[in-house]
Each structure stands twice: as structure tokens, then as C-alpha cells.
Design a binder for these strands. Structure first.
Lengths: 151, 151
DNA sequence: CATCAATAGTTGTATATGCAACTATATTTG
DNA sequence: CAAATATAGTTGCATATACAACTATTGATG
């Protein structure tokens, strides 16, 4: 296996980094400007919405949002303080907790979604045809899958 | 213009965020483990290598690496302290400075490159065919260009 | 089953980075 | 050309997040 990327792939990598930084920056600002929760909070809460019974173990959440355990602890502190989720002890395993979405958390998601959706659409999605979006997704899914199996 | 992304595009967006986080995390760890400069330092120095006379105004650098002015000031402090670049006053405009790559900075880049290249290759590039890399790059370039003209 | 190892989560501490306010210099404008 | 405005960069402060050490609990092993 060749240890070095060619120009084409290297260029793709560098664009990936730069585009990510500017997109996150832009969309996060749009959310803040509209008096909504920041992007990282959204990402956490949306994982809860999609989870069975709107709850996830903290370590699962940390994994899904790619955050360290300690980072997650503090983020959950803030979200709990803001009333958007609550910790619930787990009777099955008394070491751990569930993070459970609250009604206010769900409301925060609903409020933010139109802004977030518009940001994704205008800054990102409009630039991808359906075919391009499929290539894009397929590639990133492959990358993520390979990481899972390695570690 | 439809204000909401469809499922396909939304999925691409979420993969984009997650894949970015895990890739940066992995590659940065590889660099640190190999006793090289961290990824963000690399990104700064590589912009200098590619700039005319290996120098850029600080604000240009901030722009290229998508960092706030104050963030850049501090990053440049660290890099200058480590001897990897130096600030040079600009005779044309005495408000500002150039960041100029030093020999040690160039050496740090050379040392890190094999590790970084292997990381890009193994974690990212192997998953993109040439065609996919072209689609990927084209899309991200389009995104970046649109942001430039808007702001 | 008693000990040892592994796991879930938290906390102390260090680093990173943004915003707003500030200094110094340059540019514009009446 | 003097005053007002804009720009380059830095600094004080607040927030974010990682690592390592810690507590509590669970699981594995002789």
C-alpha cells in the first residue's frame, strides 16, 4: 500500500479540512444569531431524539458525538442545567446514567431545526447534486466503517 | 429555493461532521505519537511553505487556516517560541507583521510529512477512487467559493 | 467467593480559542 | 490637512475540551 496520497487526494483532504471549518463556523453563527442552541448542543440532543425512548447511556452519547468522556460530562452538565435533558440512574448498572431528552430539549430542537436546516441547505446541500451527495455519503460511510473495525 | 435539505443531503451532512471529527482526532494522535508537531501547526506552516518567499501577513494566515485573529496571535506566539517561524515587521505597513518560516519550521514539516501523509492515505485517501476524489474536491471547492463571494 | 482487572462517570488541571476592548497605524472625507 | 473611520495585531476574560487521576461499581479468574 502506497504510504502517500497523490495530489488529487491530498487536495481533497485539504479542502475537507477548510470547508468543514468554514461551514461549522457559519452555521453555528446563524444558530446563535437566531437565539437557538449551538450546533454541538443540537448534535447531542438529536442523538437522543433518535434513540429508543429518547435516552442513551452517557458513553454511547460520547461516542456518537465524538467527544471525550470528560468533555461529555461537562456538556451534559450544561444541557441538564439548561433543562434540555436529565440524567437518570440506570437500575441495571449502577455505575452509569442515561441522558434523557426533556420536553424543553425537544422544544429547543424544534426551534433550532428551521435555522439549522436552512444553513445546511444554503451553505452545503445546494452545492451537491443527488449523485454527488450519494458519492459523498458513500465515501464518508466507508471511512467511518473502517475506523470502527480498526479500533 | 427549498429551505430544507432532503434525507440524502442531510445524511451527507451528518457523515461530514462525524467523519471529520474522527479523522482529525486519529491523525493528530498519530502525529503526536510520532513526536511531531500537531496537525494545526502543520497546517499553518504548510501555508507558509507555499507562500511567496515563505511569508504571509498574519491576517492572511488567519484566513487560510480559518482561525480568529486572536487565536492566530496565540498560535503564532507558540510557533515563534518553538522557533518554527518568526514575525517580521512590514516596512510597507507598520501596523502589521509577516510570519516567516524558519529553517527549523521547514525541518518540522519535513519530519511530520511522512506520518501525516501515511495518516491521510490510510484513514482517508484509500477510501476514495480517483473519480470519487474528483467529485469530493469539486463539491468542496464549490462550497468554499460560494462562501467567499457571499461575505 | 476473594481478589484483580475492567468499565462508567466525574473532577483537577492544562491548553485552545473566541469575543470585546485596546493600541498603533493607515485611509478616507469634509 | 484635521478629524473620523477602518484595519492589524494583541490582550483580558470566558468557555470548551482533553488527559490523568480518582470513586464506584461490575465482571473475570484462580
Amino acid at each position: 500500500m502506497n504510504p502517500k496520497p497523490d495530489e488529487l487526494h491530498l487536495n481533497a483532504w485539504r479542502l475537507f479540512i477548510t470547508a468543514h471549518a468554514t461551514l461549522i463556523d457559519t452555521i453555528d453563527r446563524e444558530l446563535i444569531a437566531a437565539d437557538c442552541i449551538p450546533l454541538h448542543w443540537y448534535d447531542v440532543l438529536v442523538e437522543l431524539v433518535e434513540a429508543p425512548a429518547h435516552r442513551l447511556r452517557l458513553y454511547e452519547l460520547a461516542d456518537k458525538v465524538v467527544l471525550s468522556r470528560s468533555g461529555l460530562t461537562r456538556l451534559v452538565d450544561k444541557l441538564e442545567n439548561a433543562g434540555l435533558l436529565k440524567r437518570e440512574p440506570n437500575p441495571e448498572d449502577r455505575r452509569g446514567y442515561y441522558a434523557v431528552l426533556t420536553e424543553a430539549g425537544y422544544a429547543a430542537l424544534r426551534k433550532a431545526w428551521p435555522i439549522y436546516a436552512a444553513g445546511i441547505q444554503n451553505s452545503f446541500a445546494v452545492h451537491l447534486s443527488d449523485d454527488e451527495a450519494e458519492v459523498f455519503s458513500r465515501v464518508l460511510r466507508k471511512i467511518l466503517k473502517s475506523r470502527q473495525t480498526e479500533e
